[in-house]
Structure formats: C-alpha cells, structure tokens
Amino acid sequence: MTDHSTIEMNVLRQIGWDHWDPVGIRQTDDPAWRTAAADEYDSYLLHTAGMVLQSASQEAVAAYLDDITVINMGLGPVNGAIHGASVRTADAIAAYLRTRSNDARSSDTRDIR
C-alpha cells in the first residue's frame, strides 16, 4: 500500500477542488483565497488519505468529510449535495491511492531468469 511519503499534494488538492470544495473557493479569481484554502484543505485531505490507507470504509471517509463541512466549517446540515461531494471525494482519493499502489508494485517487479 502507498505510504504518506508518496502522496502528491497537488493531486489531492485537485481532487479537493474538483469534488469537494465546500466553501466554493475554486470559483474565486483571488489567488490569496485559493492559497489560504489550500492550507486548510490540505490537512483534511491528508487525513482522508490516511483513513483510506488504513482501510476505513468509504462511508467512514465520507462521514469525516461531512463532519468537516458541517461542524468545522459550519455549512450544515448534511444534505444530498454535501454528502454526494464527500462520497465523490472519498472515491477519487481511494482511486488515486490505488493507482499509486499499483505503480509501486509494478516498479518492484523484477525479471528473474
């Protein structure tokens, strides 16, 4: 399985912008807002990746993101849109980590003759 040292933050950030972004920062043209949001989002996305790496269920990962959106950011209550974004984010992060894991296994393959 992939460890944290091989996770590319730019990939996690893009997943966050594309699927989650509860505050809607991606819609702003102000780079300062995107930088400030990236700092905050990074910790949530890394925690999410860690949950996936520790084999947490998709529902547990999505529930964590729901809690961040509702409790930490005060954007609740959870509704279909919020939960759908959390599920899509959990799925995208899991898919990314599977790809990284598959890449690592492929590079470990040796030709034995």
Rank of each mutant, 00 (worst) to 15 (best):
L46I: 11
S106T: 14
I71L: 10
S43W: 03
Q54F: 05
I112T: 15
A60D: 15
A62I: 01
Y64C: 04
Y96G: 11
D91G: 15
D42F: 05
D103V: 07
N102G: 02
Q58P: 00
G50C: 02
A49Y: 05
M73F: 10
T89H: 12
R113G: 10
T89W: 07
D67L: 06
V52I: 14
G50N: 05
I112V: 15
S107I: 03
E59W: 01
A90G: 15
V70D: 02
Y44V: 10
D108M: 06
I68S: 04
D42E: 12
E40C: 09
T109Q: 09
D42Q: 06
L75S: 02
H47G: 07
R105A: 15
Q58Y: 02
T99W: 08
D66F: 03
G84H: 09
D91H: 15
N102F: 09
V70L: 07
H47N: 10
Y64R: 05
Y96L: 13
A49I: 09
S86T: 04
R88V: 01
A63R: 04
S86G: 11
L46S: 01
T99L: 13
T99V: 13
L65A: 06
L97T: 14
L97K: 13
I82D: 09
S57F: 10
I112K: 14
E59P: 02
S57T: 13
H83Y: 06
T69Q: 10
T48S: 00
G84S: 13
Y41C: 03
R88K: 13
N79Y: 01
I82N: 04
A90W: 05
R105L: 15
Y41P: 00
V70I: 12
N102Y: 03
N72P: 00
N79E: 03
L46H: 07
S107Q: 11
V52L: 07
S55L: 08
L65K: 00
A92R: 13
G76F: 08
A104D: 14
S57G: 14
V87L: 13
A49R: 05
A85P: 04
